[in-house]
Amino acid sequence: MKNILQAINVNKTFGTRGNIYTALQHINLQIQEGEFVGIMGPSGAGKSTLLNIFSTIDTPTSGEITIDGQNIVTMSEEKLSDFRRNKLGFIFQDYNLLDTLTVKENILLPLALSKVPPAEIEARVNEIADTFGIRQILDKYPYHISGGQKQRAAASRAIVANPSLILADEPTGALDSKSATSLLESLSKLNDSNQSTIMMVTHDAYAASYCKRVIFINDGQLFKELHKQHLTRKEFFQQILEVLASLGGGQHDAV
């Protein structure tokens, strides 16, 4: 199987001499095509920093990162923009939909940016809207729809351009449990049927249990890795909770 993401010995430090804070330390990570990977860890463990670095909106202090065969550390600012547009899809906790655009326009934005012809745009948008079940709300504005619908619209936008890697940052963070389940099921379905590669940062064990593999980070270092393999989702959920308990920061989430 093809390696989509490869991080070798990634370090990230903040601050100046004498007052250095290490956010990430010796991170080595591989994500293969068609994987659904969850990143977990207590607050301040470095999850968001890692995600930002993979998103190319932050740079590591040292180390090498290749996504879909391209080294993103040495890439120029201009090229990075193109790279993000073509290879990456983003789902954010607070949806980040543009409220001056309809749901449909929000979804087609990446295609419009890549100057795809209108007919093709129309077809792609309708297809994805069906996958996420938001066909009826395509012409509504973000402030008219619910949080769950917003997040599904955002997810649609993330995958509409067929990115190599989808990065999700706490996608269920602002959703009620029903909407969260529906979104996670959609993502899971997408991963199964389209072989989409997804990396999801979450602190919610329930959300993480939909992943095929969960990586735990603590104090900026890789702590443990769990594979779902043949386990049912419930069993996997129990395993995740146990690791979180051992991390100490997770009890809260394990209610």
């Binding site: 998103s55 909106i57 600012e77 201009e78 923009s81 193109d82 790279f83 993000r84 547009r85 073509n86 990456l88 983003f90 954010f92 980040n96 543009l98 001056t100 934005l109 990446p110 940016l113 936008r157």
Partner: peptide, 16 residues
Amino acid sequence: KERYQILYKIGVKKRE
């Protein structure tokens, strides 16, 4: 500001 930050994240160049 926020809108443009979203745009930047999803791959719009600063020049654009």
